[in-house]
Design a protein around this nucleic acid. Structure first.
Lengths: 218, 218
DNA sequence: CTTGAATTAAAACAACTGTTTAATACACTT
DNA sequence: AAGTGTATTAAACAGTTGTTTTAATTCAAG
């Protein structure tokens, strides 16, 4: 009984995540969700109360399952440059993950661009820990007495570059052309962002330098 | 007759812009738009055919009225550093403009994060010209033989930092706290992005340097 | 004043929305 | 075997959606 009853609830949550991520809260309909979840229309209200509660549950599920860069313990002997490189690459991997279940990140990004009631929990459980991780790396890369506010801005500069390639990907693709954009793949983007940011912090050569073997596939 | 007939059509377009910018295409209702435009419900279909055509017209109107950084002619003797500084500042001013009519930029940003059929025109008429302007400045800031692809990535790095403070402003505010975020005002952001980017290109001191009088209120 | 087209208005349209109800099916205990 | 509480279903609910229809109104030209 428990196995079966939990099954439909879970199927519903999974279907809700996919559809909310694709269409957003308003445009998604509970009938679509129930159809994909192979459940009756009344199931949403039976298990979750109403549509909004289902949405919040889906967002929660998304940020609970994706805790990649939270509480990382860096291997000994790593330079802060290496740490930043891995941070950027891993962020991009999560973000651009074409594999399943892709809706987790998409739903979170939607919440980040167009926040609802669910975004407070998202910030506390997911974003703030990641921001702290990044803040630690930045602290290693800069002078000890760097102003806290400036440290935050540096973090924003790094993260914003990563977010761009997901949030504004359609526009970027339209701008440079579909074929050319295939060269804007994950390794290329990751290396550019890392080099750009390290150079900005005075911890690497200008991004315009000829050689580019900053991080030979650690 | 012409004056009056154009009046309601324009009122409708203005109201549509505001409401579409605030709620998005799906969540905005033609009844809300007509109420704000002081027109009958049938007016939308009478003047524009259907809701989607009204939306596209609103997006068009938005990107036609905002052509600030397109085809700029830089004053003689300006260094590329100064040009970049002005570019960033002006982008942020348009983007963060709290003054009227703020819906133009908000509607375009919505289209950039969540593109519909209207975004192709938007790219060609607004985004591509601005990208060309920025590309010119970057060309001045780097070696002549810089790879085109890398030039584009540098442009993305700069623009993404600007976009961040609009698109993800709610999250950023939630992260650093409302009071502290008041210090993330336009001049502070503009200076940080300019210094960060110039340093990345090897055209300025690291962003972590103590002094910050890069651009004393030109 | 009359004509006739353009504009506005009120009402109705069918389709869809989230949600609720009431009946049924099922597994379990007593 | 009857009873109990949970899970699922089909049907209906009331409200909103975009759109259409039909009629009233406006208003300049003849």
């Amino acid at each position: 009984m428990d196995a079966l009853q939990e099954q439909t609830r879970d199927r519903l949550l999974e279907a809700a995540g996919e559809i909310f991520a694709e269409y957003g809260f308003q445009a998604a309909t509970v009938r679509d969700i129930c159809r994909r979840g192979k459940a009756n229309v009344a199931a949403v209200n039976y298990y979750f109360g109403d549509k909004q509660a289902l949405y919040i549950a889906a967002v929660e599920r998304a940020h609970c399952s994706a805790a990649g860069l939270i509480n990382v313990v860096w291997p000994k002997g790593w330079t802060p440059q290496q740490k930043l490189s891995v941070f950027v690459r891993q962020w991009l991997e999560q973000q651009l993950a074409e594999n399943l279940p892709s809706w987790h990140m998409r739903l979170m990004l939607r919440e980040m661009s167009d926040p609802t009631d669910a975004c407070v929990k998202l910030v506390e459980a997911y974003i703030r820990p990641m921001a702290e991780t990044l803040r630690g790396v930045i602290r290693e890369l800069t002078r000890e007495d760097l102003a806290e506010r400036q440290g935050r801005m540096i973090g924003f500069s790094i993260v914003s570059q990563c977010l761009f390639y997901k949030v504004h990907r359609p526009i970027a693709e339209l701008l440079v052309g579909r074929e050319e954009y295939t060269h804007f793949n994950l390794p290329a983007i990751a290396e550019h962002i890392t080099r750009f940011s390290l150079a900005a912090l005075g911890q690497g050569p200008p991004v315009t330098a000829t050689t580019s073997n900053l991080e030979p596939m650690s």
